[in-house]
């Protein structure tokens, strides 16, 4: 998030924000008093030598102390107005559809030991780190995609299903996404009657080799309309190849395609060119979907900030007030 995206939080008690007018007044008074010339002090005649010999008493401590005290006042005034802000809370429940590419291109060995084995390992690790309350479904993506496991909370079933996957010819992303949506529909409703929010995690290397029945972009758009984000993990290297019937086909990963798909749904695409990067990307996706941003009162945050500034200002005041000798 850049600075320009920063939005002022809304307040529960905006009427109390008038207190924000006080710190600028105090600052103006401070500047006025500091600039005033007719200050009482000691007259001394030999100041030409004095200013050359005695270093000027640095004023930064004074200014910093006053500044921090005023900033802490601002923070406390904001806290008193009870601001609202976004906060990350762990997601209670979700339905996650893992779409795993099992096309022949996954047999390429540019990712050790092979793309499929690495994808399986990453998917297993990913499932194992999910909270037990999440529903997980598995869809294998190939020329004829099929739902392997409907949404279940028993993650062991998913792990076993992942390990049993075999390669199949060709890839059809659109059909796989449609299948994923069908799996999401099977998710059991929660206690409040609403189905849990759905997420799709795709592990793939490249877009289809056959003409798909349904455009992948169209399917992604439908998913976006339903509010289901796609997190795509695209892996493989540009040098990847597979030998099918003694013919060598190059299978470079197609990152831009998947990042377009993810962007359509409000998700994110990650590229990985070896097993450890893939594991990292899985970790990222896991932490991304493990939390949800909610609006809540952040008075404590603002008050704590104010307290921190006030503490530093108090240290400065003590340092100024103390005669060290």
């Amino acid at each position: 998030m850049t600075f320009l995206d920063f939005a002022w939080p809304s307040f529960l008690a905006p009427g109390r924000l008038w207190l924000l007018a006080v710190p600028p007044l105090l600052l103006a008074a401070y500047i006025f008093l500091a600039r005033r010339k007719s200050k009482q002090g000691m007259r001394y005649t030999n100041t030409g030598v004095l200013q050359a010999v005695v270093p000027p008493q640095s004023q930064w401590l004074r200014h910093v102390t006053v500044g921090l005290a005023l900033v802490s006042l601002v923070a406390l005034a904001l806290a008193w107005a009870r601001p609202f802000g976004t906060d990350k809370v762990p997601r209670e429940r979700a339905t996650i559809v893992i779409v795993l590419d099992v096309s022949y291109s996954m047999e390429a060995v540019d990712v050790a030991p092979s793309r499929l084995a690495a994808a399986k390992q990453a998917a297993v690790d990913f499932v194992n780190q999910l909270p037990a309350s999440y529903n997980v479904a598995l869809v294998s993506m190939s020329g004829s995609s099929s739902g392997r496991v409907p949404p279940v909370t028993d993650h062991n079933i998913i792990v076993r299903a992942i390990e049993a996957l075999e390669t199949q010819p060709s890839t059809d992303v659109g059909q796989a996404l449609e299948q994923a949506m069908a799996e999401l529909d099977q998710a059991p409703a929660g206690e409040d009657g609403d189905p849990p929010p759905g997420l799709v995690v795709m592990l793939s290397d490249a877009a289809g080799t056959t003409n798909p029945d349904k455009s992948p972009r169209q399917a992604a758009k439908e998913m976006g309309d339903r509010g289901v984000p796609i997190y795509a993990l695209v892996f493989g290297t540009d040098n990847g190849y597979v030998d099918i019937d003694d013919v060598r086909y190059p299978v470079p990963p197609d990152f831009s395609f998947f990042s377009d798909l993810a962007a359509l749904t409000g998700g994110q695409a990650y590229a990985a060119d070896d097993a450890s990067r893939l594991a990292d990307a899985c970790q990222k996706v896991g932490s991304e979907i493990g939390y949800v941003e909610v609006d809540k009162e952040v008075t404590a945050t603002a008050a704590g900030l104010g307290l921190a500034f006030a503490f530093v200002a108090a240290v400065g005041a003590v340092m100024m007030g103390a005669r060290w000798r």
């Binding site: 200050k39 002090g41 001394y44 004095l50 008493q57």
Partner: peptide
């Protein structure tokens, strides 16, 4: 620590 002023010049400094 005191503000020292010069009676003639504009010198003013905390010393």
């Amino acid at each position: 620590e005191i503000l020292i002023r010069d009676p003639e010049s504009d010198f003013e400094r905390y010393v």
